[in-house]
Design a protein around this nucleic acid. Structure first.
Length: 427
RNA sequence: GGAGGGGUGGCAGAGCGGUUGAAUGCACCGGUCUUGAAAACCGGCGUAGGCUAAUAACCUACCCAGGGUUCGAAUCCCUGCCCCUCCGCCA
């Protein structure tokens, strides 16, 4: 949620920044609602003041043993007037909030305007696309190839068990998948200073409101049947970031750096026909997520740091990648700036997203009322939140298979993972 | 699933229909004292919104959440959520 004060303090910037996303806002509706709100609030508060004053008078009179009947007669009708004013005020506030919460975050100064991924800007590359003197197979072919353990990656079985966009893995493939999780968690906790957390994979709607998946993006989520309003998490970002919802964090505990492995569940509504083959886009996938809560003045540096931590994983796995600065139109609604990491996929002869690292500044924090106590002012102030994949496990597995494949259909194991594979060097 | 007890300021814990935004203690901040520290003593110490030049004063709201009763609710009633104890069931 944006700071409503922007409406008065910097409306031009508000409009210009949102335009970079291709979003045009009409501020007049907000200004009109705010005017109404102000008027109704003053009216309501005045009535409340009158009621309070008179109630006190009656209390005193009664204590003094006086006859309060005439005083009671005077206040008749006040209650109804107050109720009406309160209702009108609540309606206007609701209308304002409903509309205001729909506004996406303001992109930072450095974010280029643009419509979609074609307008993203490449910041840097690491490694060179893997050279192959044969036609590379894609990970589906490799996963089903006899040279590996045979049907190590079984999409048909998953379709039988559930439906499309799921996978069954066996043997070394399943172990490699698990090894990636362990490796990433170890790297982030031991080398990058993150604390590992374990969280629920089912959350309530308040949490999804806090990080911005609701109210706008309900169709992307799996909603559970039952009396409780529960959802499967689409990313660890939701439970982990919401740890600070309604909290005031002591300054000396900042920054909070948390790493969390969870499965992620996404309905992928609206992605029909896209990436239908293989493990690129699944309803269920594993991810190791990096989350930071930092002082506002530190969030820009923290985004660079966090992105670097994700990049480090790719470097250790020796996977060629590039770092992209997303344009306004391609960023998620809550983000102020997003850097995507794209890994080289030989079968597709292009780079594909494997990590997305964002700073939300105070956009999520305002929704969550997540604050820290600023020692300079002694006051609770909104903190800044960031997160990024470090990395998406399924896509990393795909990248390893495709980049480490041999002509005979076998796949080498990246050196750094061999200890996690019990010494096995080939899939 | 059954039976009971609770949810009050950073924490602990009073209040149980009227001048209570809320006693008291702890923690925290400032001061006096002290060579320094501690102790003792004095003072301060919530959040949000409105008004405003103001981080002053004043007004409003907030004692889990949402409804209700009342001139007046932290206090009474209803619903929900959460926590605790006991019984049952269970990985």
């Amino acid at each position: 949620m944006l700071d409503p004060r922007l409406l008065k303090t910097d409306p031009d910037h508000l409009v210009a920044a949102l335009a970079k996303r291709g979003v045009s806002v009409d501020l007049s509706q907000f200004l009109a609602l705010d005017e109404q709100r102000k008027r109704l609030q003053q009216e309501t508060e005045q009535l409340q003041n009158e009621r309070n004053t008179r109630a006190k008078t009656i209390g005193k009179a009664k204590a003094a043993g006086e006859d309060v009947a005439p005083l009671l007669a005077e206040v008749s009708g006040l209650g109804d007037k107050l109720d009406a004013a309160k209702t009108a005020l609540a309606d206007v506030q609701q209308a304002f909030n409903d509309a205001w919460i729909q506004l996406p975050n303001l992109p930072q100064e450095c974010v280029p305007a643009g419509k979609d991924e074609k307008d993203n800007v490449e910041l840097r590359r690491w490694g060179t696309p893997t050279a192959m003197n044969f036609k590379p197979r894609d990970h589906v072919e490799l996963g089903e190839h006899e040279a590996t353990t045979g049907l190590a990656m079984d999409f048909a079985a998953a379709t039988k068990l559930t439906g499309s966009r799921f996978v069954v893995m066996r043997g070394r493939m399943a172990r490699l998948h698990r090894a990636l999780i362990q490796f990433m968690l170890d790297q982030h906790t031991q080398q990058h200073g993150y604390e590992e957390v374990y969280v629920p994979y089912i959350v309530n709607s308040d949490s999804l409101m806090g990080t911005g998946q609701l109210p706008k993006f309900a169709e992307d989520l799996f909603h559970l049947e039952g009396e409780q309003d529960y959802y499967l998490i689409p990313t660890a970002e939701v439970p982990v970031t919401n740890l600070v919802r309604d909290e005031i964090i002591a300054a000396e505990k900042m920054p909070l750096k948390l790493v969390c492995h969870t499965p992620c569940f996404r309905s992928e509504a609206g992605s029909y026909g896209r990436d239908t083959r293989g493990m690129i886009r699944q309803h269920q996938f594993e991810k190791v997520e990096l989350v930071q809560m930092v002082r506002p003045q530190d969030s820009d540096a923290a985004l660079e740091e966090l992105t670097g931590h994700a990049e480090r994983i790719l470097q250790l796995l020796e996977l060629p990648y590039r770092t992209m600065q997303l344009c306004g139109g391609d960023m998620g609604a809550s983000a102020a700036r997003t850097l995507d990491l794209e890994v080289w996929l030989p079968s597709q002869d292009c780079y594909r997203e494997i990590s997305s690292c964002s700073t939300f500044e105070d956009y999520q924090a305002r929704r969550m009322q997540a604050r820290w106590r600023n020692p300079e002012t002694g006051k609770p102030e909104l903190l800044h939140t960031l997160n990024g994949s470090g990395l998406a496990i399924g896509r990393t597995l795909v990248a390893i298979m495709e980049n480490y494949q041999q002509e005979d259909g076998t796949v080498h194991i990246p050196a750094v993972l061999v200890p996690y594979m019990g010494g096995v060097t080939t899939l």
